[in-house]
């Protein structure tokens, strides 16, 4: 009735304003940094660990006599925008120094020490290493770089940090950049799961229910024997299909408050399974950490509509 009185132009303007307000609240309503601080601590520690492992095999990974020398690296990146000052001709001492600084910046990021700078430095140095060592990378590096990139634009050092404890930098209770970074992590995760699920849906093993068995039967991945699942083909099939449907629907079901706990609980189980049974404890752990972005700190008395004010916006 009101819309009729306003006329079609007025109704459209009203809808546009509603949309803009929702979008504005979704990306810009200031939130606190507690969840991002948790993600920062885990990501910083993982960055430090990643560079420690690169250091353990320094001669194999860096320098002119590494497994991937400058010529092979140049051919690999010949048509790609993958510039890094680590180009295969780096002296070992330089690579060592680079990795030590990266390790240190990861630790500083975890501790929350001059977080605004150390997070950016940790991300940048890890990115430089990633371009240098592309053939050695896997999902872990994708997730760690994704999280550190978004943490770089946040104020994740405003909670549980040395910055806050000792007043190293000015901190805020709530900041719009925390919301923006949280939203970007959430949306990026949805893209990862959606296409991850679509990719699986192209394979027949994810439909005939045998994918769980064939994942468990890969000796190179195995860290804990899960071949017992072959004795229970129905269980293996149910787990296969649950994984497939959960992954495809994650992007839609993780937003409503009714379904979010279930979606996150399955995420925890799936990634814990990958960590424990498939030998990728680092990757599994970081995927669980990334899912923390969908947790909402306790907020008594607030009963907002799930879609209009999804997690994080109503803090």
């Amino acid at each position: 009735m009101i819309e009729l009185e306003r006329g079609p132009t007025g109704a459209m303007a009203s809808r546009w304003n509603d949309f803009w307000e929702t979008l504005d609240r979704f990306f810009f309503k200031p939130t606190d940094a507690r969840i991002l601080a948790l993600i920062r601590i885990a990501t910083g520690l993982m960055i430090a660990y990643i560079h420690l492992v690169w250091l353990l095999g320094l001669e194999s990974f860096f320098g002119t006599e590494s497994l991937l020398d400058d010529q092979a690296l140049a051919m690999l990146h010949r048509n790609a925008w993958k510039w890094s000052y680590l180009n295969g001709q780096e002296p070992l001492w330089f690579a060592c120094l680079h990795e030590v600084i990266a390790l240190g910046s990861g630790l500083a990021m975890a501790l929350g020490c001059w977080t605004r700078w150390t997070t950016v430095i940790a991300w940048f140095l890890t990115l430089m290493t990633a371009h240098r060592l592309a053939p050695f990378l896997f999902g872990l590096d994708q997730i760690v770089l994704m999280l550190s990139m978004y943490l770089s634009i946040s104020r994740c050092g405003d909670s549980w940090s040395l910055d806050q404890r000792f007043g190293l930098t000015q901190t805020f209770d709530k900041h719009w950049r925390n919301t923006l970074a949280t939203r970007l992590i959430q949306l990026h995760l949805c893209v990862i799961y959606f296409f991850g699920g679509l990719g699986k849906a192209r394979g027949w093993m994810w439909w005939d229910g045998t994918a769980m068995w064939y994942s468990a039967a890969s000796y190179e991945y195995q860290s804990l024997d899960m071949t017992w699942i072959g004795r229970y083909p129905t269980l293996g099939s149910i787990l296969t299909h649950a994984t497939l449907f959960w992954e495809i629907t994650y992007a839609g079901l993780v937003w409503p408050r009714l379904t979010r706990p279930w979606v996150l609980a399955i995420a925890l189980l799936v990634h814990a399974g990958i960590a424990i049974f498939l030998g990728m404890i680092t990757f599994g752990a970081m995927m669980i950490v990334a899912n923390l972005a969908f947790l909402v700190p306790s907020q008594p008395g607030i009963k907002s509509a799930a879609i209009r004010e999804p997690c994080g916006a109503s803090n």
Binding site: G196, G203, E220
Partner: peptide, 11 residues
């Protein structure tokens, strides 16, 4: 984002 996709394969 092709994790274990389209099918788990040989190593």
């Amino acid at each position: 984002y092709f994790f274990f996709a389209p099918n788990p394969g040989p190593s």
